[in-house]
Design a protein around this nucleic acid. Structure first.
Length: 432
RNA sequence: GCCGGGGUAGGGUAGGCGGUCAUCCUACGGGACUGUGGAUCCUGUGACUCGGGUUCAAAUCUCGGCCCCGGCCCCA
């Protein structure tokens, strides 16, 4: 009988896990450097947590099930909603604001797998709860930027938008909610021709010629902070978008103070969801093709959606697997050395107990080592050590042992020294 | 959900107009070689994705499932 892993899942072997752990650890360093603390939430939650956030339709893309007590549950498809729940359950009344937390864990979506998209995938993200925009937003974006830097990704595009600007325009022109959503969906696709077709083609979604023209010009404005004045010019006639525009302007100024300059202002970033209230941002890595988005986030009022007190939250999440793809695509992977420092090879049966003693001596002193567990012939042990790419081998043989010595062999140069057992630890540590 | 390309030992492959024992490389085990690895030689284990159909005969042709790869839709 043969077993296969479920569709859309992966096994990770030694080297890949080492790479992934290395990247995760870099991200942890950056996040903790910004004062964030790690949390963990359950892999499954009540189904309604996710349907409340995103609507009943997402059940199609959830792994949901009924447990033996008839509870409606679902594997988490993302971690923002669980974090909001955790905040309401545990932190709302007890923690002084702002709260900075981060998470790293896997999520599950029932979707068609393809490049950079799996049914089990990992998200590494953060939430800043209860900080005043735009400084909170600026710091979050700065941390995102530093994270990419730290893991060696250059050339990523950070795209920033403030949804309030377009929403303000909608309000000014009295556009109903359904139409707004339709237009946002088209905007989110980032297809300029499609947008023009939808707005000024045969059957315009919006019946205001004036708004259509403004929208098309706005979406076309993509660039650095110099485009702010063009945006201002376009919307100067209207009262409703002004506050949001001011916030965007302040964000840009604050980003400057945080030392972040390599971003793009792009009013085409929509992120669809109704609960986003302020800025939104996405990070793209063009080399990744169809699944180029590696990060998404923004400011939202999800907690209010869940029945908590109104509070400003800003967060983002990296698609961890896509980051790994990007690293593979954009950087030279450095060769991984052996996973152990030393291999201990006993020459015959009699000295094997001594080899175990030496192994434990090294391990207790923080030196990672392996020792023969298979009673193999000495020659095979050397072969094995070579396959492990280990740099040093300690040869334990009766002749040396008479003087309480062992032979330390350097596998790269082939040189070997006879050293006393008492000096092994120090000798190995010096050579680190 | 839709479109295209695929699936042969652990990994990588040849074969593919149906017809000897299914090829080679690598990895793995043992040996040549009883205190010294990477080389060489010998040797062993190990595969046609699954199911139905056509046929005297299917890895090969055909239909369907499963899975993988790329794209569309979607993407909280």
């Amino acid at each position: 009988m043969e077993f296969n892993k479920p569709r859309g899942t992966r096994d990770f072997l030694f080297d890949e896990m080492r790479h992934r752990n290395e990247v995760a650890s870099s991200l942890r360093n950056v996040f903790e450097n910004y004062g964030y603390q790690e949390i963990k939430t359950p892999l499954f939650e009540e189904l309604k947590l996710f349907t409340t956030k995103s609507g009943e339709e997402i059940i199609d893309q959830l792994y949901n099930f009924t447990d033996k007590s008839n509870r409606e549950l679902a594997l988490r498809p993302e971690i923002t909603a669980p974090v909001a729940r955790l905040y309401l359950n545990e932190l709302q009344k007890s923690s002084s604001k702002p709260i900075k937390l981060y998470y790293y864990g896997s999520c599950f979506r029932y979707e068609r797998p393809q490049k950079g998209r799996f049914r089990q995938f990992w998200q590494f993200g953060c939430e800043l709860i209860g900080a005043k925009s735009p400084e909170g937003e600026a710091e979050v974006i700065a941390m995102c930027n530093d994270s990419l830097d730290k893991i060696g990704i250059t050339g990523a595009d950070i795209n920033i938008n403030h949804l309030g600007i377009i929403r303000g325009l909608f309000k000014h022109f009295n556009i109903d909610a359904a139409t707004q959503r339709e237009v946002m969906v088209v905007i989110d696709k980032g297809d300029k021709e499609l947008l023009e077709e939808s707005l000024i083609g045969e059957n315009p979604l919006i019946d205001s010629e004036e708004l259509n023209q403004v929208l098309i010009k706005l979406i076309d404005l993509v660039g650095d902070k110099s485009i702010l004045k063009d945006i201002e010019e376009l919307i100067k006639e209207y009262e409703e978008p002004k506050d949001s525009f001011e916030e965007l302007k302040q964000l840009v100024e604050t980003l400057n103070s945080f030392g972040v300059n390599n971003y793009t202002i792009n009013l085409g970033v929509a992120r669809g969801l109704d609960y986003y209230t302020g800025i939104v941002f996405e990070v793209y890595i063009p080399e990744l093709g169809a699944q180029k988005q590696v990060c998404g986030g923004g400011t939202y009022s999800l907690i209010k959606v869940f029945g908590g007190e109104e509070i400003e939250s800003t967060g983002f999440a990296f698609g961890f697997d896509r980051l790994m793809n990007a690293i593979e695509e954009l950087t030279d992977q450095k060769e991984l050395g052996s996973h152990i420092d030393v291999y201990i090879a006993p020459i015959n049966e009699e000295v094997r107990p001594k080899a175990f003693e030496i192994a434990q001596l090294l391990r207790r002193n923080g030196i990672a080592c392996d020792v023969d567990l298979n009673r193999k012939k000495f020659k095979k042990l050397m072969n094995h050590a070579n396959n492990l790419k280990v740099e040093k081998v300690i040869i334990v043989g009766p002749k040396d042992l008479e003087e309480n010595n062992v032979t330390l062999k350097d596998m790269n140069s082939g040189e070997q020294d006879i050293i006393s057992i008492d000096s092994i630890v120090n000798t190995l540590k010096e050579e680190e």
